[in-house]
Computed example of a mutant assay.
Amino acid sequence: MESSRSGKESGDIAIPVREVKPSKSGKGAPPVVAAPIRHGQVPPAGGWKRGVGIIDLILRVCAITATLAAAAVMGTTSQNLPFFTRLFQFQASYDDFPTFTFFLAGNAITCAYLVISLPFSIVCIVRPYIVGARMLLLIFDTLALALTMASASAAAAIVYLAHNGNPNTNWPALCQQFNEFCPRVSGAVVGSFLAVAILVVLVVLSAAALRRN
């Protein structure tokens, strides 16, 4: 009675063990020994991998916001100067620069991909040890990172010329006249580089999670 009470107080669960008696020939199975199981000792079901999946999902939402804002600002950027002549009207629009058109397309594609990748990110939270979905995210995140970096870098070069010009090639500083156009495109480029930074973190997280599998 005292041993049973002490076992209940310590939190151990008694598991009945049946001892197999050896046969007449002397060949019998060894007795089965079972270790006591304590209450509250549950093996970790995902551990830090589930936490990585949650961070991954949050960062994807942030990257969607950044790329969507960058594409929307660039796609709605246009300015007409108040003075014009019969033959010429001074206007600046994003589609006057092929680089800005590429910037808009690159960020729109990245934003669409990130939206599609959300279910895969949720799967990585529910099943933290899955490899296939995380590998797909790693591959396509790297491609999205390359596309966004290329479009943002190309647009940043044009924004620099618009702000400072280039006297050697007679490129005027357009921002001296178009004082509304330049801040908008500059803000779009900053938002795109923010998305690039988030994508870098996503690639590192996916690679780290796969390395520990």
Rank of each mutant, 00 (worst) to 15 (best):
V201S: 11
L210G: 01
A195T: 06
P31D: 14
A72Y: 11
L210Q: 06
W171T: 08
V42I: 15
Y160D: 13
R60P: 00
M1V: 13
R50M: 12
A197V: 02
G75D: 07
T169G: 04
P44V: 14
L199I: 05
S117K: 06
F84Q: 12
I158Q: 15
I58M: 13
K27G: 00
G165Q: 05
P172C: 05
P31H: 11
A92E: 10
G187C: 05
A72I: 10
M149K: 14
L81Y: 13
G53P: 03
P31W: 11
P98E: 04
D141K: 01
G106R: 02
G75P: 05
P44Q: 13
G132A: 08
W171G: 07
Q176M: 03
A34I: 15
A162Y: 05
S25C: 13
M149D: 03
A157H: 07
Y160P: 00
Y129L: 12
P183Q: 12
G106F: 06
G51P: 00
L210S: 08
R50Y: 02
C182L: 03
L205T: 10
V32Y: 04
V159N: 13
A133L: 06
L202E: 10
L210A: 03
M149Q: 14
P36V: 12
T169R: 04
A105W: 09
F90P: 03
G132N: 05
T110W: 03
R50I: 14
T101L: 12
C111Q: 09
F120W: 06
L174C: 09
D56F: 01
I158A: 11
T65P: 02
Q91T: 05
G47T: 04
Q91S: 10
I116A: 14
R86D: 14
N170S: 15
R184I: 01
Q91I: 07
Y113P: 01
P167T: 09
G106N: 06
S153C: 07
A162T: 07
S25Y: 12
L174P: 00
A66L: 05
G187E: 04
K27M: 08
A146H: 08
A197D: 00
V20Q: 02
V42N: 13
I122F: 15
S6I: 14
H163Y: 01
E9A: 14
N170Q: 14
Y129W: 12
I130H: 03
P167F: 10
Y113A: 10
T169N: 04
L68D: 02
P167L: 05
F193K: 09
A112V: 04
G132I: 10
V123C: 09
I15P: 03
R127Y: 11
V42P: 03
G187K: 10
G187D: 04
L194F: 13
R38Q: 12
Q41E: 15
F84L: 07
M135C: 11
I55E: 12
G11I: 02
A144G: 10
V126Y: 12
